[in-house]
Nucleic acid binder design. Sequence first.
DNA 1: AGATTTTTTTGACCTAGGTCAATGGCAACT
DNA 2: AGTTGCCATTGACCTAGGTCAAAAAAATCT
Lengths: 221, 221
Amino acid sequence: MENRTRIIADSFLFRGLPEAQLAELARIAVEKRHGRGETIFFEGDPASGFYMVAEGKVKIFKVSMGGKEQILHIFGPGEPFGEVAVFHGQPFPANAATLASSSLLYFPRREFVRLVSANPSLALNIIAMLSLRLRRFATQIENLSLKEVPGRLASYLRYLAEEQGRDDRVVLDLPKGQLASLLGTSPETLSRIFARMSEEGLIRVEGKTIHLLDMEQIRQR
Amino acid sequence: MENRTRIIADSFLFRGLPEAQLAELARIAVEKRHGRGETIFFEGDPASGFYMVAEGKVKIFKVSMGGKEQILHIFGPGEPFGEVAVFHGQPFPANAATLASSSLLYFPRREFVRLVSANPSLALNIIAMLSLRLRRFATQIENLSLKEVPGRLASYLRYLAEEQGRDDRVVLDLPKGQLASLLGTSPETLSRIFARMSEEGLIRVEGKTIHLLDMEQIRQR
DNA sequence: AGATTTTTTTGACCTAGGTCAATGGCAACT
DNA sequence: AGTTGCCATTGACCTAGGTCAAAAAAATCT
């Protein structure tokens, strides 16, 4: 099977669709390559189609008047983005840029809308995906509003530990500056908190590897 | 048409369903009454069904270890809540309580899941609803992270102005303490900010009525 | 390897806004 | 009208974390 076909067929979004439609999707998808740090679209751009990450990593983010960034999502291979805007025919509500050099599949609006109406199981997949995102957003709001920065970092470390299936150490999947933007803080503050948690013996930082020395304590945050 | 039937038929969620199914829904819905300030469910409760507001107002909120509240949503007549959890068979991810004495319709899980699978147009309604919520959440994250409290208040005043269809004054639809919790701040801080914006001549506060004296300036925030 | 750019860390300083406590207003109830 | 209870306001104080600037460390390029 061709690479792009496999990405489509294995994706959470299109899983379970009939062969014919998967092939159709693969046919209409346009492949786009982006170097690291390139912008894919800006907030307010008309949404004439949506994307799926084939390879690499993409961030969706808002920017304040003062230029501060807040990352809303980070998407990896198999994950679609920009579909919500496409669905409503509204402009994109946030910016998208690559965090690593990436290969993306672009799906034009028309085809997608047609497919969803015709395909109940696709609609159910979309509902599942949106529900999951809603849950993540709710957690992010909770973290931003009810936890201080150390607590948010702890929350992210727990998430990574779960995702990487280990509880002794995790490997950061993004630069610390970007992590700061995801956690809603500044690189300086994040750096200080890493330092403090190290002094307290909760973690040990070795470049991108964070050793979790006392998960119990970390959980408390 | 009976009252509950009208609520169901007019709702964003069930709009467009065939008569027979609307009637079926009205039949299986259980009506529940709650006085002001009562809890409907707690975070972590098993989600055996979901609700729709028939009358009154409901808040969905998280609580920090220290007891601080963050409101995620406020729902009024015709709006469903708790459906996402029901869909996944997961426990409720947040608490729900009434902001005013309310009448709710409760729909048991089984019926709903069956109905969605059988009914493509219902699935599309759900997608539209989830998309809208996702957008609102994104705005809330942006506000919490990238704006200071005056900016968040300005954002809410704009929202109210739009909703109430006027640009000279708006009427607060919730107590100021609850508004503080929605904006992710404390009642004290919110009170001070109302005072400051009044001194600056941006607004004039008369109980629950806020006169918008300089919408241009307010927009800047 | 050396040079250049980007990222991270550290230090010094400052402020938005949180907390605690007291007071004032207002509404509901008797 | 008086009492009770809740909500909003104000004052005093404090701290988490933001900002600016500089140094150090990594990553990237030739």
